[in-house]
């Protein structure tokens, strides 16, 4: 894997340990899955997997998530029946950040839902009740979204296929905006991320995200909660997008994004000459070498 020089220049100054960061990007991700509590329980799944002779390690910050020492969890009975959902660990964070809110919410939007990892998790956290709108702009990805929701036994979802910017002005209690991004943080599973990587691409994603976050915020009920997340390191797609929200919607308040047992890092204070608001420090960065995961960014915004 060849890491672009410009990529190194951008991020090595932001991380605590440049060597650990760069070498981690070339390592395979651990295999992880989440128990689908609509169909099963962590204890039940653990018992079955022990019977298969597979070693499972419970994720310290999420009792329903496991790291599996065997890459063949996808050939298990539990995967077949939808009792487990194979999912990268950091991808489980956005719903987990608003678990409490989801438990009470009856009207929820997952704005960029395909292929459905987070939607299935949200539905489970809602107890498969209420209404979850799982939207995605890409028609070709709706099929995977539908398949995964069906497999997970999700009943409370309406799948829509719209550009979020053109979405009706409905008001939701909780919204997830796992925004389309340059996906730098997925390099450990998608080696071709660097093939298409460019700062121009980052700029384009940033512009799209700035529109989406305003739209999503406007669709919140008063006191509603929005989770904004990306799987990229680029400050243009993370802190800068939150700054854009704060500048245009001064009533937006950021709440602390943290998880017991997971190492998160401070956000970037300034980038390309722009100082970011202190409020943005409530968001969290996850660097791959700190928890042996993909890279991630997430923020919890209250209206």
């Amino acid at each position: 894997m060849r890491i672009p020089d410009r990529f190194r220049e951008r991020y090595c100054s932001l991380v605590d340990d440049e060597e650990a960061f760069l070498s981690c990007l070339g390592e395979l991700l651990p295999k992880s899955f989440r128990v689908n509590t609509i169909k099963s329980s962590a204890d039940e799944v653990m018992r079955r997997f022990e019977g298969y002779g597979m070693g499972l390690k419970r994720v310290p910050w999420y009792g329903d998530a496991f790291i599996c020492d065997n890459p063949e969890a996808g050939f298990s009975l539990e995967h077949f029946t939808g009792a487990i959902y194979i999912q990268e660990l950091v991808s489980m964070l956005p719903p987990l950040l608003v678990r409490e809110e989801l438990g009470k919410s009856r009207f929820v939007l997952d704005g960029c839902a395909a292929p459905g990892s987070k939607s299935t998790q949200i539905a489970a956290m809602m107890g498969n009740k209420g209404t979850l709108i799982a939207n995605d702009v890409s028609y070709s990805r709706i099929r995977a979204l539908k398949f995964n929701l069906e497999k997970a036994g999700v009943l409370n979802t309406v799948i829509t296929n719209r550009d979020l910017n053109a979405f009706q002005n409905l008001k939701f209690e909780t919204i997830l905006l796992d925004a389309p991004c340059s996906s730098e943080g997925t390099i450990r599973k998608n080696y071709d991320v660097f093939d298409a990587w460019s700062e121009g691409g980052i700029r384009q994603f940033s512009n799209v995200q700035k529109q989406l976050i305003l739209k999503a915020f406007d669709m919140l009920m008063p006191e509603g909660t929005l989770v904004y997340s990306t799987c990229t390191f680029a400050p243009e797609e993370n802190e800068e997008v939150l700054q854009h929200l704060i500048d245009n919607r001064p009533e937006a308040r950021l709440e602390k994004a943290s998880f017991d047992g997971l190492r998160t890092s401070e956000t970037v204070g300034s980038w390309n000459g722009t100082e970011f608001s202190g409020e943005i420090r409530n968001a969290a960065r996850i660097w791959p070498h700190h928890n042996d995961t993909g890279g991630f960014f997430l923020a919890k915004v209250r209206k």
Binding site: T157, N161, Q168
Partner: peptide, 14 residues
Amino acid sequence: PRRVPDLPKIATIG
């Protein structure tokens, strides 16, 4: 779900 808003471009309900 019991509550389904009147939305265009619904692909699937439930």
